[in-house]
Simulated scan of single mutants.
Amino acid sequence: MSCGEPHETDCSEVLEEVWLFLDHECDQGRRELLEKHLDECSPCLEQFGIEEHLKVLLRSKCGGEHAPETLKQRLRDKIRQAAPPPRTS
């Protein structure tokens, strides 16, 4: 996805990392880049809002239970394998 506007961080890259952003699992520098992009890009901000609401819904329906770290890592690995490679300019 791309909004057609130039950004320091590409829209598709931001949306690939939105769950890391929501879960505070990226370093501070990366978090600031993603946050800046979301402030500038309304299509990504809208998608971010959808993802954020989904996370809240899942948390409320799952009773606040935390998945084991090994499961989280396996899921991250599978998502990275399934995600298309980042585009290079």
Score class of each variant (00 low, 15 high):
59 R>P: 00
82 A>W: 09
61 K>Q: 12
71 L>S: 09
38 L>N: 03
82 A>Y: 04
18 V>R: 05
46 E>M: 14
23 D>H: 11
54 L>R: 12
59 R>Q: 09
55 K>Y: 03
2 S>M: 13
76 R>Y: 05
53 H>E: 15
7 H>N: 02
25 E>H: 06
1 M>F: 07
17 E>G: 05
46 E>A: 14
30 R>D: 06
24 H>N: 13
46 E>R: 15
35 E>P: 01
69 E>D: 13
10 D>L: 13
34 L>C: 03
26 C>A: 15
5 E>C: 12
35 E>Y: 09
29 G>D: 09
3 C>Y: 02
37 H>C: 00
59 R>K: 12
38 L>R: 04
74 R>D: 07
29 G>P: 01
87 R>V: 04
29 G>H: 10
71 L>T: 03
37 H>S: 01
75 L>C: 07
73 Q>V: 02
72 K>W: 03
21 F>I: 00
79 I>A: 13
47 Q>K: 08
53 H>S: 15
15 L>Q: 13
87 R>G: 09
89 S>E: 14
36 K>D: 07
56 V>P: 03
47 Q>E: 14
10 D>W: 10
46 E>T: 09
34 L>P: 01
51 E>P: 02
80 R>L: 08
8 E>N: 13
33 L>T: 01
76 R>T: 02
18 V>K: 06
3 C>N: 04
26 C>T: 14
33 L>Y: 00
59 R>C: 02
88 T>L: 07
57 L>K: 11
8 E>I: 08
72 K>S: 10
59 R>I: 05
23 D>V: 04
46 E>G: 05
42 S>R: 11
15 L>W: 01
53 H>P: 01
70 T>H: 13
20 L>A: 09
87 R>P: 00
44 C>S: 03
32 E>C: 00
12 S>V: 10
74 R>H: 08
53 H>W: 09
76 R>F: 04
22 L>E: 01
26 C>R: 08
5 E>I: 06
2 S>C: 15
53 H>L: 11
77 D>N: 11
83 A>T: 10
59 R>F: 04
81 Q>D: 14
65 E>M: 12
36 K>Q: 05
31 R>L: 14
24 H>W: 09
45 L>G: 01
77 D>H: 14
14 V>G: 00
48 F>W: 10
32 E>H: 05
77 D>E: 14
17 E>Y: 03
23 D>K: 12
55 K>Q: 07
65 E>D: 12
73 Q>S: 07
79 I>D: 02
19 W>C: 06
38 L>A: 04
21 F>S: 02
1 M>W: 06
53 H>Q: 15
26 C>E: 11
61 K>S: 08
85 P>H: 03
58 L>V: 08
34 L>F: 00
40 E>N: 10
17 E>F: 02
46 E>W: 15
6 P>R: 12
87 R>T: 07
38 L>M: 03
71 L>E: 07
75 L>R: 12
27 D>K: 04
27 D>H: 03
23 D>G: 14
1 M>N: 08
55 K>A: 07
